[in-house]
C-alpha cells in the first residue's frame, strides 16, 4: 500500500528523517512513536506531499505521491489545525470537504449521523466558527473530516492529543472498527504508548530521524517501549 525508498529529509543541513526502506501493507495499522523532533510529523507530511524530500520516494499504491494527486481520493488525513478552515462552521467545513470530493450533502448528513457520540454534542448545531472551538473540539472536527471520504488509507498525527478521556476511548474504538470492518490502512503517531499499542498491530520507533525499532505488537510491546523510553 505504502512503500518508502531511500527517503531523506534535511533542514539546513541537519538530517531530520532518514528511512532507507519501509513497507506498509494494505490493512495494516502502523503506529509511529518517538520523542519530540524524532521526525514523526515530517514523515507524515512527506507521505501527504506537504513537504519535499531531499532524496527518495514514497509510493502509494505504486504511484509516487509527488508525481500525481490520485492518491488524495483514497487518503484521509489530519495533521494539525493547519488543515482546518477556521472561519467556517464545522458543518460548512464538512460540506466543503465533501464537495471537493464529489460527495453530496446527503452523504455528509448520513456520515455525520454516525459521529453523534464522538462529537458529544459539542460540534454540530452550535453556531460557532471552527476558530472559536477549543483545541480538542477542533481535533474532533479534523479527525471526522479525514474520514468523510471513506478512505482506504488514514494518516493521523497525534490524534489522541488534547482529546478528553471519553473521546480518546471512543476514538480507539472507532479506529479498531475501521480496521476490522473496512480494512483501512492506518498510520498513526502518538506520544501515548498505551493508546498506540492498543490500536496498532505494528509499532515503529523513530529516534532523530532513524527507525530504531520495528515491532509487531504483542502483550510485551508496551513494556518494551516503556523501557526504551525510560531515562
Amino acid at each position: 500500500m505504502i512503500e518508502v525508498k531511500n527517503l531523506a529529509k534535511a533542514y539546513n543541513g541537519t538530517i531530520v528523517l532518514n528511512i532507507p526502506e519501509l513497507k506498509i501493507e494494505k490493512g495494516e495499522s502502523f503506529g509511529l512513536v518517538g520523542n519530540n523532533g524524532a521526525g514523526k510529523t515530517t514523515f507524515f507530511r512527506l507521505i501527504l506531499d506537504l513537504i519535499k524530500a531531499n532524496k527518495g520516494e514514497i509510493y502509494s499504491q505504486g504511484i509516487d505521491v509527488k508525481k500525481t494527486t490520485d492518491w488524495k481520493s483514497y487518503t484521509g488525513s489530519y495533521i494539525d489545525e493547519g488543515f482546518l478552515i477556521d472561519f467556517l462552521t464545522p458543518e460548512e467545513y464538512f460540506d466543503f470537504i465533501a464537495s471537493v470530493n464529489n460527495l453530496s450533502k446527503g452523504d455528509v448528513k448520513k456520515f455525520l449521523d454516525q459521529f453523534g457520540d464522538f462529537f458529544n454534542g459539542e460540534i454540530l448545531g452550535k453556531k460557532k466558527y471552527i476558530r472559536e472551538l477549543s483545541r480538542g473540539n477542533k481535533q474532533k472536527v479534523g479527525i471526522a473530516a479525514s474520514l468523510i471520504t471513506d478512505p482506504e488509507i488514514l494518516v493521523l498525527d497525534e490524534p489522541f492529543a488534547s482529546l478528553d478521556p471519553s473521546t480518546q476511548i471512543r476514538l480507539k474504538n472507532l479506529l479498531k472498527q475501521l480496521q476490522q470492518e473496512k480494512n483501512v490502512t492506518m498510520l498513526i503517531s502518538s506520544h501515548d504508548l498505551n493508546h498506540v499499542t492498543e490500536v496498532c498491530e505494528r509499532i515503529v520507533v523513530l529516534d532523530k530521524g532513524n527507525m530504531i525499532h520495528d515491532i509487531k505488537t504483542s502483550s510485551d510491546t508496551l513494556q518494551e517501549l516503556e523501557s526504551y523510553f525510560a531515562v
Partner: peptide, 13 residues
Amino acid sequence: SNYFDGIIANNID
C-alpha cells in the same frame, strides 16, 4: 495561510 496545508493535502483540484 491558516489552512494552507489543508488545501494542498485535501483532494482539491
